[in-house]
Nucleic acid binder design. Structure first.
Lengths: 400, 400
DNA sequence: TCGATATGTTGCCGTTCGCAACATATTGAG
DNA sequence: CTCAATATGTTGCGAACGGCAACATATCGA
């Protein structure tokens, strides 16, 4: 029988857990007073004092003297704040036509950023790595007193394992490229990689419209349609890390053929190409989705119907997801955020027609808006190691 | 900003956590030696000694003298085993046409069982409660020295909250019946309720074919088609507890109308009624699925094609789920286990056609076979409170 | 019979947090 | 301006927990 193995707890892990909790709060919510930390965590004031002291000793947070504008009586509480330049991560976002590399400080501030276009000559995995490495060195050089605690990369690909292998990136012509390993070997440091839509979802749930929600599904419309699923506050990876391929859920078994080989995929109804095709079939001469949305908003009936049709299909896709996952909210981002903005009633129509728990489980529809979502998500991914065990800062890694 | 609130850890919770880990092992895996527990958990021998001593003091486990058949040199290890009659839970399984009530001991043994048929006169929620209460009293009376640590109930309904409300049970004509509360009030004890398919899934993952798997989806064919999703070893409930309505995922937007109001639901292709309808349409005069499967197995081409068609649709449904959830295995149970047994290649055909990660993420298909799955799941649900905090045994509940 | 091996048991130690008492800093009333 | 009230920071002590080393115990095999 397979062993479950919920590992045991040891006393020193308590402190690690509590340090992690505090640093997570500070990383995500900015400045928090010590007494707020105490009531938030339920820990004793004295314990909070000790924990914050440890974090100060580690150099990752600072305590600011009591604030001026204190409300009510009593001694003003120290304000604890993450030090953005104490430690940083490097976030890499490989998109279909550009690459972005950023240094992100604790707390989420972008401390530096480099961006370049991709073309046929520099699109291969090794070429991207060749360009990313000097970009990282340049960013690192600009942060002489900041310790790098992780590297995270977002790729528009199915990612088998966060520690390395990008399996299949049709839009980059990558196949089985071990992008994370390639980059990691060059830097002599482990690189965590994630699917771009997964990481965008993480960004929305950490710092975007879905901040703090525990059960969210994000659907991202870029060139393809991807998505991510947050279950109980954690990004769902599944058995092999391939969860969240929402764009290839089939809504119509005999629907249009998708490049993935299946028929009637969500992507074939609400993907960028699909909507544009449907606009052309409706007689519209349009080359960009923005134009279509604009026309629809201005009241053009034909454009409106094209968008509404896509919106209803989008809603149907969400309905299927709602039946399976019962999230508290959906986040639509990329051009799907526009679809939601322009035609929310149609999205709802599709959603409510297909949701078996309609009326029982109200679902919020949110427009994802966070900038550079995948980049932010990659940074969050990279910070995870530090946040999980702040006391290990500066300790050599167990081997990569 | 919504607060995440990963609660803090305290020293006494360590022991609770470790007691919980040990008791869970013993409850699920039967007898385990003390040294096995030590290597399983990573805890020190002395710590294991203390923890097991606590569990013995609580009365829930016993240590048997060293076994005869020890292998190799060294002092034989004590064997620790859950005491089946020390504590028990009551599990209630309300099915469409019958009700079953059982007392289940720690470790999973059924210590007593009562079952009766449902008909129009005793199908209402209050009538069921009226019959369940004396059945529970009778079972309890037969276990004079066993402490009851929980009551769990499975209902074929959408369940809003484990502590009470069954929202909608079309097959029982229940609507907004607070079955759990009704029963709990009569017994003056909280009752946990769950969806029958969810609990069957739990049973398969705890004690069935999917034992120990961390990412599983179970699809259950009874009168309707339901299911459950296990994510990272935990049953997925979703925001409001409605996750897992797999039978109402739509596979064909313009497919046959389902009683839920949507078109092309999985249930309309692989539900019992749907398969029988399809058999009739194929010219077969058949009144039970068993007959159909039998004919298909004997080589009847028409029956075979009816089953194969259902199997392909079933596979398509699984493909959608695989794209979203990327489980390591699917479990088919109820008549869908038969479909899988008779026509696995067709199921795989549907699955592989729709799975975007095909070839990357091999998926095991399992026939769920555990008897009285929902009942077993209800018992597991009821045991959860004890397993999560064994040290609280005998402590009065915080208020129901 | 005795060494090797594996396991159980005991006493001590380090770590962690809670708690109570005290110290400190601010507000607001008189 | 003074002082009580209030909220927070700080300190020292105690309780709970697991690890560890040393020792005790039980079996096997030569």
């Amino acid at each position: 029988m397979r062993t479950v193995g919920p590992s045991a707890a040891r006393p020193e892990q308590i402190r690690r857990h509590n340090l992690s909790t505090l640093l997570r709060h500070l990383h995500l919510h900015g400045q928090v007073s010590r007494s707020e930390l105490a009531s938030l965590t339920g820990l004793n004031r004295s314990t909070i004092g000790g924990l914050v002291g440890d974090l100060v000793d580690l150099g990752v947070v600072s305590q600011r003297s009591p604030t001026r504008n204190s409300k009510g009586a009593g001694r003003p509480a120290y304000v604890v704040v993450a030090r953005p330049r104490s430690v940083h991560v490097v976030a890499v976002d490989v998109d279909v036509d550009s690459v972005q590399v950023a240094a992100v400080g604790l707390g989420g501030d972008v401390l530096g950023r480099v961006r370049w276009q991709l073309h046929d000559g520099n699109r291969s995995a090794t070429a991207v790595v060749d360009d990313v490495v000097p970009a990282i060195r340049q960013l690192t050089a600009s942060l002489p007193h900041s310790h790098r605690v992780g590297i995270g990369a977002s790729v528009p690909a199915m990612v088998a394992d966060p520690s390395g292998l990008a399996v299949y990136a049709p839009n980059l012509d990558w196949s089985d490229e071990p992008f994370g390993e390639l980059l990691g070997d060059r830097l002599n440091e482990p690189v965590l990689i994630g699917n771009d839509a997964d990481l965008a979802t993480l960004a929305e749930q950490r710092r975007g419209v879905a901040a703090g929600l525990r059960h969210v599904v994000c659907v991202l419309g870029r060139v393809g349609v991807g998505g991510g699923v947050i279950v109980d506050g954690h990004l769902l990876r599944g058995a092999r890390g391939y969860a969240g391929e929402l764009g290839h859920m089939s809504l119509q078994a005999d629907g249009p053929l998708c490049h993935c080989g299946n028929h009637g995929c969500v992507e074939e109804y609400v993907g960028e190409a699909a909507i544009l095709r449907s606009a052309r079939e409706a007689g519209l001469e349009i080359s960009a989705l923005a134009t279509l949305f604009e026309q629809a908003e201005r009241g053009d009936a034909v454009a409106g119907e094209v968008v509404a049709t896509a919106a209803r299909w989008f809603g149907r896709g969400l309905a299927n997801l709602a039946n399976v996952l019962n999230p508290e909210a959906f986040v639509a981002s990329g051009h799907l955020a526009e679809v939601l903005r322009v035609a929310e009633p149609s999205v709802r129509e599709g959603l409510e027609r297909g949701m078996v728990t309609i009326g029982r489980a109200p679902i919020t529809l949110l427009q994802g808006g966070i900038r550079d979502a995948s980049l932010v998500g990659a940074a969050e991914l990279a910070f995870e190691e530090l946040l999980a065990a702040p006391d290990l800062l500066g300790t050599p890694r167990p081997a990569s």
